[in-house]
């Protein structure tokens, strides 16, 4: 079915062949770098790199388009919110004010504010491909093993990976329930007013929760009956052993993290200031 989002996408690529733990470490290093820095130069380089890695992974934009649109919408919302609540943030940070459009008082649009928000947007664009790639190129079987390898307790790892792997099932279930409710006359299409559609959605959520609870009970019984939680540790059938490539990638990514931090904090400030 076409609507399975955020599930594993099978391709043959160098990114896929890395161990899940490696990808997780890279993702964490990558996003810490992107979170910490506001240096536009660093962000631009990282953006180019992440687009390059994305191309190497052979994942197509349309494979993940739905999630991408969702994130873009969220980004837009975030930008609007920043402008509404803190329209002079850029001026405060960069210490100068170049007004382009005069509105009223603090809502004047300044180049500094635009530049600041450009940086925020860049951060999104840097982190998003990395996060998506980690999820869609790590086989779900390996997912829990990777979390466990970097020190997360195996129970928590398993809980997270089970949640992720049930997403497609729950989407399928959602569709089935939605269709049967539509057949009872609950209109979810565009013909209905928005607020009514939101209300109607509750007639799907309730059965969805009930059937998910059933599912959880069955699977937790099944796990317990087969000895899950007996020991402090467990081994993993589908963990990928670390290969040379994994070590190289991890070392490179940590070096990149350090390099980006050095560049960022070289002048004692997280922000790159073109207005000085």
């Amino acid at each position: 079915m076409a609507v399975e989002l955020l599930s594993y996408i099978e391709r043959k690529s160098p990114v896929h062949s890395l161990s899940g733990a490696t990808k997780l470490i890279v993702f964490l290093a990558w996003s810490s770098a992107a979170m910490l820095t506001y240096d536009t130069r660093v962000l631009l380089v990282m953006l180019l790199l992440s687009l390059a890695i994305f191309a190497i992974s052979k994942v197509q934009i349309r494979d993940i388009s739905f999630v991408l649109y969702f994130i873009l919408a969220f980004l837009l919302l975030n930008n609007i919110a920043i402008y509404i609540f803190s329209p002079q943030e850029g001026v405060k940070i960069y210490g100068s004010s170049h007004v382009i459009i005069d509105i009223i008082g603090r809502y004047n649009i300044t180049i500094e504010q635009l530049f600041y928000q450009l940086n925020i947007t860049l951060k999104y664009f840097v982190v998003t491909p990395a996060a998506l790639l980690f999820i869609v190129t790590t086989h779900p079987s390996e997912f829990a093993a990777s979390l466990n390898r970097i020190g997360v307790s195996y129970k928590i790892s398993y809980a997270i990976s089970l949640t992720l792997r049930y997403i497609p099932d729950i989407q399928r279930e959602f569709r089935t329930i939605a269709q049967s409710q539509q057949a009872r006359g609950i209109d979810m299409s565009k013909n209905e007013k928005l607020w009514k559609r939101v209300g109607n959605a509750s007639t799907i959520i309730f059965p969805l929760i009930l059937s998910s609870l059933d599912r959880i009970e069955v699977v937790s019984n099944a796990m317990e009956l087969r000895g899950f939680g007996k020991n402090k540790k467990r081994s993993w059938y589908s963990a990928k052993p670390f290969k040379r490539g994994d070590y190289i990638v991890i070392i490179v990514s940590i070096l990149l993290l350090i390099l980006s931090l050095i560049i960022t904090f070289y002048d004692g400030n997280r922000f790159y200031n073109p207005f000085m």
Partner: peptide, 20 residues
């Protein structure tokens, strides 16, 4: 509902994994 692993091998191995 009772499958825990995604592939056949992984599911069969579940009890063994728990025995380390």
């Amino acid at each position: 509902g009772q499958f825990i692993g995604l592939s056949v091998g992984e599911d069969i191995a579940f009890a063994l994994e728990n025995d380390m």
